[in-house]
Simulated scan of single mutants.
Amino acid sequence: MKENGKIRLGISIGDFNGIGCEVALKTFEDARMLDFCTPVIFASNKIISQQKSDLDLNMNFNGVRDASQSIDGKINVVNVWKENPKIEFGQATEEGGRFAIKSLRAAVTALKNDKIDILVTAPINKNNIQSEDFKFPGHTDFLAQELNGESLMFMVTDSLRVGLLTDHIAVKDVAQAITPKLIRDKVLTMEKSLKMDFGIRRPKIALLGINPHSGDNGTIGEEDDKILKPTIQEMFNKGTMVYGPYSADSFFGSNSHSNFDAVLAAYHDQGLIPFKTLSFGKGVNYTAGLEKVRTSPDHGTAYEIAGKGQADASSFKEAVFTALQVFKSREDYTTWNKNPLQKQKTKRAS
């Protein structure tokens, strides 16, 4: 962040044949958004001009060679490439995947070098991004390699937060992947994020069982009894407020999630199906546990509506606001922890 300037928000455009550019540009077509941050899009002037024209969007942008040249009050576009790739809305092309990764790598490099403060990533296609130079199932795994920390896929809204013990792995591999160490690492990452990123001083975390009915005391699998329960008890005894395992089939339907600050699901669909059912369009995918802040909308490339001007930018806008909130919360957390006097005042007040 520039001295006395706004927070610089980097944007990787994702697959330009999907709705990524559309939702990003629609978000900042509203000039009031420029009061909150300075957007820096990693793409090229030609791509953004073409998307703007194809989607009939009304805005101007400022082309720059480097993110450090970005100007507050304007939509800035860093020219990452000079080529003029062909946009084929609705098609999963090799070219679309290749330039999505070029945008992502440039944005992450700028983030690591403090030329931007936070990053919002538009959706990619997990198939056409694969290459000899990029062999990751998605953003989260790549960011975990590039940015220091223990990553956690954390889906968040104002009233619901769901993290994942395992994310992009086959269901048949879930039980074997879940170990006491993995549980400890993910729970502690979630606990730290809730404190540092969301300002919750004593977070309560619910852990969902692996098997139906959390195994029914070993009748439907032994993993819950032999791995989850003892690890949860061990962590609780050491002061972490983690509870469970809870049967996943009734947990959200009974509104049990409202009793906790966050829920840790055993695997991808166990957590994301209820999350998206309850909050689709307003949810945000946040990569917790890293030294830098990254969010994304809770939807994919949506090829079926790409180029038609029908995409709803609500989730992307929420991703922007969540990234800004987390960035500011981290600043407050750091200040509070560096100031023992402030701690004493807070304790006396409470």
Rank of each mutant, 00 (worst) to 15 (best):
L111Y: 13
P85G: 04
A306P: 07
D56C: 05
I169E: 04
S279D: 08
D224S: 13
F154V: 04
I305D: 05
F99N: 03
K126L: 04
N127Y: 11
A206T: 14
T38E: 10
I205D: 02
A144F: 05
A206R: 06
V80T: 08
A265W: 00
A170R: 03
G283W: 02
F42E: 02
M59H: 11
G163N: 06
K52W: 04
D167T: 10
N259G: 10
D216W: 11
A107M: 14
A306G: 10
Q344D: 13
A313I: 00
K238E: 11
L272F: 09
T231G: 03
A265E: 00
R65K: 13
A262K: 00
H257K: 00
Q130S: 08
L207V: 12
G18A: 09
F136K: 08
E83P: 03
Y286L: 02
I273K: 02
D224Y: 10
L160W: 12
T166C: 09
L324Q: 03
L55W: 09
T240K: 13
Y303M: 14
A349G: 00
S329H: 15
S250A: 12
Q51V: 12
G281I: 06
Q270I: 03
G300Q: 08
D54H: 11
K338R: 13
K347Y: 13
A323I: 03
F275Q: 08
D173L: 14
K135C: 07
K102C: 05
P340H: 02
A349Q: 07
T295Q: 09
I47Y: 00
G253F: 12
N60Y: 06
D56E: 14
L25S: 04
